[in-house]
Design a protein around this nucleic acid. Structure first.
Lengths: 368, 368
DNA sequence: CTGTTAGCGCCTTCAA
DNA sequence: TTGAAGGCGCTAACAG
């Protein structure tokens, strides 16, 4: 409740559109038109209005505007977890793109909690978001049908309900993953492990499928024992690496379904005294900022959060403003080579030790 | 512009409070009261209203409510940069605390860009935020005077303008930093470097002062050559470490004004073949999630983003709702020992090599 | 305890 | 091109 119930009495703000109109000696309609840049306003009057606005320090109340015009000017962004390092960059990109396109944003994180997500949808609906991007990578998507029922423009990643107001960001996982596998193959690796994400996730399945496909293309045997299911967490990465270490024959390289998992792998390797990349090569996925800060800097497959954010905003904008919006938007991925990948152990046994001691970083396909 | 200018004609939403009133056979006032849980509504009628609401799937328009009540129910959060790893946790905590207290949040990042910040303030004002937390750690604060002029409740970190509507989160840097210095001293370090943040920042100055003070308390000489000014970035950490390496006498330990800087230090050490902690001990500040993921896991001083977020929301809430809000809120810091700190080199020269080879992690003061 | 009514600040027809 | 007037969906006096 407000400080004192009293002061809500004479509520009319001293600084509303009327004050400006009075100062500029025009009607409120003219002020409104000026602010909204309706072209038919006389230049002289417009100037008077702008002057009044500046002198008074007037700032229009956007809520009232929304009520009057029926447009909120806001789009929503739903992510699963802000503290997952992939998302801050996504959010930043989304915010930039939204502002660029004249929209305000509403951010919500579901934290994998269905109750929280209910609330979060409710809030977006209450605020009359004109469109919502649901970039949770497959988590809890079914529940979003509720949103779809309101016929508001929606963007999903990978896959979404088949409705006219819904568009989908198709991420080309295969391209980057193929590059990664080829990179490892070129270095001489033949025993390549893969730590997937939770296979309930569409995105995780796609990545695994892309890996199997790429490995097959390179004529490499995909030993089932080397494919383990992780959960996209650091701790999960550690656990999966433990399983890989227990394998009857250990892989010499491991690809991970995301970078956070790869960090877990690096960690476990450090714990058991395996040197990366000398003893084991590691490739991550996402290319989060942390990747280049790791020791050693992590070779990773970039899925640009900026690209995703831009595509999402573009999709929303087209749905809101255009007559025939596209239903699909492509987003590419590509390999970024850093220092967590090298020749498999044993490959350089015929070289003099001095030559082994300082492994030069490999040339980057994309700059880190 | 909307898809077709036409369909805005007969705009009255089919699902407004009137529809509910009609279905429940009551007046719109009763519906309003029911929704707002005014206690004086007859239970029978309330039930009729709720039933109608559920059957219709009615969701109140919060903008209209804001307009009518004069309250937006939103508080703002301004940070300098979402992609700085300290902030996601802060944002998450702030969102949680805000929702907990019945507020919606508006997030903005300034990206150190004054123009962007202007916009960001404008947006908060337009949206009629009832209070704003400016958690940028001293960056660009002067510009926020504009906000203060509107007499809306504000929260700053460390220091802020001296006005009745402004409160300040006083962070006790000294406590954690003293623990860190004592920890190093106990291990036997006498040559301790310090990489500060940009000294234009109040928070950076406080940390440096706390360090000098703590070092003095421990009777350790603070060689000026070992205090270098960084900029809280990874690259800055690398540069500062280079300068420390060039010192006529190298420190055996280095404390950093934030974790990201410490990552740069670890990186530079890795590049030049210095092992951490065997050859050099490193302590960070902030205790970001990345700290425990680093190789080796980073000893750091925790400044809990959750504590800060909670204090900020609490301060705002008190300002908005209470009559005599507090003007200051304390936030504590404390040392978290991990594996980037150990005895200084040479301290164990009298031990057998076998005993040196496997340095056990030190017990944690706080769990990581 | 309920219903009626007059705004909240702005937008947007309509007539001038 | 401008001004007057009637909403937008909801809240909050006030009267009943």
């Amino acid at each position: 409740m407000p400080k004192s119930a009293q002061e809500n009495k004479k509520r009319r703000s001293l600084l509303d559109i009327r004050a400006v109109a009075a100062r500029a000696k025009v009607s409120i309609a003219t002020v409104s038109r000026t602010i909204n840049r309706v072209p038919t306003v006389n230049a002289k009057m417009a100037k008077r209005v702008w002057d009044a606005i500046n002198e008074l320090g007037y700032i229009p109340d956007i809520q009232a505007r929304a009520l009057g015009s029926g447009r909120s000017g806001m789009i929503g962004l739903v992510v699963s977890e802000i503290t997952n390092p992939f998302f801050p960059e996504l959010i930043q990109g989304f915010e930039d793109a939204a502002i660029e396109n004249g929209y305000e944003i509403l951010i919500s994180s579901t934290n994998y909690d269905p109750k929280r997500m209910e609330l979060c949808i409710r809030r977006l609906l209450q605020r009359k978001a004109e469109g919502v991007a649901i970039l949770t990578f497959g988590i809890e998507q079914p529940l979003f049908e509720k949103l779809a029922d309101r016929n508001i423009p929606l963007v999903f990643v990978d896959a979404g309900p088949d409705r006219p107001d819904v568009s989908v960001l198709k991420i080309d996982y295969a391209h980057g993953i193929r590059q990664g596998v080829q990179h490892l193959a070129a270095l001489g690796h033949r025993k390549i492990g893969f730590i997937s994400g939770p296979l309930t996730l569409h995105s995780a399945q796609s990545r695994l499928a892309a890996f199997l496909n790429a490995v097959d293309e390179c004529g490499i045997h995909a030993e089932p024992e080397w494919q383990v299911e992780g959960d996209h967490t650091f701790e999960g990465g550690i656990r999966c690496m433990e399983r890989l270490l227990d394998a009857s024959m250990r892989p010499t390289a491991v690809m991970c379904s995301n970078d956070v998992t790869a960090l877990g792998v690096l960690h476990k390797a450090y714990r058991v005294g395996l040197r990366v990349p000398d003893d084991l090569s590691v490739i991550g996925f996402d290319n989060i900022q942390m990747a280049k800060v790791m020791i050693p800097p992590l070779t990773s497959i970039r899925m640009s959060p900026i690209d995703i954010a831009n595509a999402a905003v573009k999709a929303l904008k087209e749905h809101i403003e255009a007559d025939h919006p596209r239903r699909e938007y492509k987003v590419d991925t590509c390999l970024v080579v850093r220092e967590s990948t090298a020749f498999p152990p044993g490959a350089m046994d015929d070289l003099k030790p001095s030559q082994r001691s300082d492994p030069k970083p490999l040339p980057s396909i994309a700059k880190g």
